[in-house]
């Protein structure tokens, strides 16, 4: 597994330098430059939406800072939580006087850092709420959703919380809508080949030449099964069946995210989507705003994830509201 990079120790900071040069709407901030914020000043009177997480997943997390999405994002080393300092700075920089929603994936390290940051800021009087992404159905049973990890479906919660905050909703309402978006989102991944950390000598796990892993996590966490490679349609069928079994549809519309994990060609994602679309139609579901591309990656991991976001009128309106960041534009 070759990497086009300089020093592994500078991997994250050099990537952030390039990202912000390419996209002037994003700015590095914080004592160590490990916060990305919107270039324009924080809007007074708006609820702030803060996320954060380890590097290695671009566009997630910091690529979703923008109008109608996130205000700030704290950034950790590759596959490592953002430190307490950067979480505190991200919260302060997003503070427009109406409180902060901390919205990030359910990982122990990220939780600890954001929790301690919240405690350290108690004296500053910034009101914070937390909603955790828990969309990965392979990481816990339906009866233990609080144990599930957050993966690609987190961007639906970003979108809904961001739209509500932009429209002037107060903190309790923004928090409720983010939690509702998480509750209506389900994701499952499939891995074809592993990735390697910039500082590591070997890939973080191994998959045989002709092997795939159903349910793999975005850091290579083990999934549900490993078996021989099969046609895309069979993989799509199983993914959709598992997703619908986990959360049976309550309405008639879903948004679908067919997400590449980093090293999968768009062609393969469209081949997968074509069958996912058919399966959803057979289940009586209409697809709204399909998203196909690399939205949440795991460096050079090969594979894809499929997320379903079950819509009602309220969530659909938030999903379709205007938003703009370097990697996602709506309206």
């Amino acid at each position: 597994m070759k990497k086009l990079m300089n020093d592994p120790a500078h991997y994250v900071d050099e990537a952030l330098d390039g990202l912000t040069l390419a996209h002037p709407s994003l700015m590095r901030d914080g004592s160590a430059g490990r916060v990305i914020r919107r270039a324009e000043a924080t809007r007074k009177g708006k609820v702030g939406i803060v996320s954060g997480g380890g590097s290695g997943h671009l566009p997630l997390f910091c690529g979703y800072v923008g109008q109608g999405l996130l205000d700030t994002c704290s950034i950790g080393n590759v596959f490592e939580g953002p430190n307490v300092d950067s979480c505190m700075e991200a919260i302060r920089l997003a503070d427009g006087g109406q409180g902060i929603l901390r919205l990030y994936g359910n990982y122990g390290g990220d939780r600890m850092n954001f929790d301690i940051a919240g405690e350290m800021l108690e004296d500053e009087g910034i009101r914070c709420t937390t909603v955790l992404g828990t969309d990965d159905i392979a990481s816990g049973g339906p009866d233990e959703i609080e144990r599930r990890r957050g993966v690609a479906g987190l961007i639906y919660a970003y979108k809904c919380a961001g739209a509500a905050a932009e429209a002037g909703a107060h903190l309790e309402e923004v928090t409720r809508l983010a939690a509702k978006a998480v509750a209506m989102t389900r994701t499952i991944g499939v891995g074809l080949a592993a990735c390697r950390l910039p500082s590591a000598a070997r890939p973080s796990f191994e998959l045989g030449e002709n092997e795939i892993e159903m349910g793999i996590g975005i850091h290579g966490e083990p999934g549900i099964w490993r078996d021989t490679l099969r046609p895309s349609d069979a993989v799509a069928d199983e993914m959709v069946e598992r997703l619908l079994a986990d959360l049976p549809p309550s309405g008639a519309e879903v948004s679908v995210l067919v997400n590449g994990l980093g090293a999968t060609p768009l062609e393969e994602l469209f081949i997968l989507f074509r069958r996912v679309h058919k399966k959803l139609a057979e289940a009586g579901l209409r697809v709204v705003m399909p998203l196909i591309g690399n939205y949440v990656t795991s460096m050079e991991m090969q594979g894809a994830s499929v997320s379903l976001f079950h819509l009602d009128e309220e969530l659909k309106r938030l999903l379709l509201a205007p938003a703009e960041c370097p990697f996602w534009r709506v309206g």
Binding site: G54, G76, G109
Partner: peptide
Amino acid sequence: MSATGSSLGTLFAGAML
């Protein structure tokens, strides 16, 4: 807390706090 965001390091710093 400034030096790392890793779980073990944050736990260590949290214990000091």
